[in-house]
Design a protein around this nucleic acid. Structure first.
Length: 208
DNA sequence: ACATTAATTGTGT
DNA sequence: ACACAATTAATGT
């Protein structure tokens, strides 16, 4: 039995289901920065995130991307679930934010388990709901908040994900996630530095 | 050690 | 938004 599976899902899935997941799932490790799903790809299996953090991005027609939300351990990809059922192309781009470990579940199994295990059904619905809420939050941010507030929120999230106050991020990378422009981010960061909220070094942002 | 190049960041218009 | 300067890191000789 994969230890991480027991650890993150042990208290919500029945022992038989855990055994089946363990048996049928394919363990996968991904390095930070690597793609998990590219837009337009067909999806064959549903990932359970055992370790690490994944960012989910929505590309526009020019290939520019906007950060929608992050997935953390214990999460699964709601987009994947809907795409799997209908065997549609992915509408999103998923990239590992940190080194990550996943368990890939074949589509056929997730359908079978939906009828056989109550805990699985609950998990799938709860995941959907959770994702919907996060998406709403993101929409609120984008629609109602100024970029400076979004930036502060973004940095806070990154601190959580990295587990460190020293973030290895370039202004360009941040601008890309927030669907903004590098110069704008540089100026906002400078302002935050003057306010004593952060300290800037080359390729490193220290959140204080 | 030095020169060259690329990438990142800062600033003015 | 665009252009360019300044600074730092990376690479080759």
């Amino acid at each position: 039995m994969i230890a991480a599976l027991q650890e993150h899902f042990g208290n919500q899935f029945e022992p038989e289901l855990l055994r089946e997941i363990n048996q049928v799932g394919t363990f996968m490790e991904v390095e930070a920065g690597h793609d998990l799903i590219r837009p337009g790809q067909y999806i064959r299996s549903m990932p359970l995130l055992l370790k690490g953090s994944i960012k989910v991005l929505r590309p526009d027609e020019e290939g520019e991307e906007l950060l929608l939300y992050h997935l953390d351990q214990g999460d699964t990809c709601a987009m994947t679930m809907s795409c799997c059922m209908e065997s549609k192309k992915s509408a999103i781009h998923a990239v590992a934010e940190t080194p990550a470990a996943l368990l890939m579940i074949p589509v056929a199994k997730m359908e079978e388990w939906s009828t056989r295990y109550k805990s699985w059904r609950n998990y799938v619905f709860a995941s959907y709901h959770h994702r919907m809420m996060e998406l709403l939050e993101s929409i609120d941010q984008i629609a109602f908040q100024q970029l400076d507030e979004r930036l502060e929120r973004y940095l806070d999230d990154q601190v959580q994900i990295a587990g460190s106050r020293e973030l290895q991020l370039t202004h360009k990378a941040i601008a890309s996630d927030l669907h903004s422009n590098r110069v704008v981010i540089s100026r906002l960061l400078k302002k935050m530095e003057q306010q004593g909220k952060i300290k800037l070094h080359r390729s490193i942002i220290e959140v204080v």
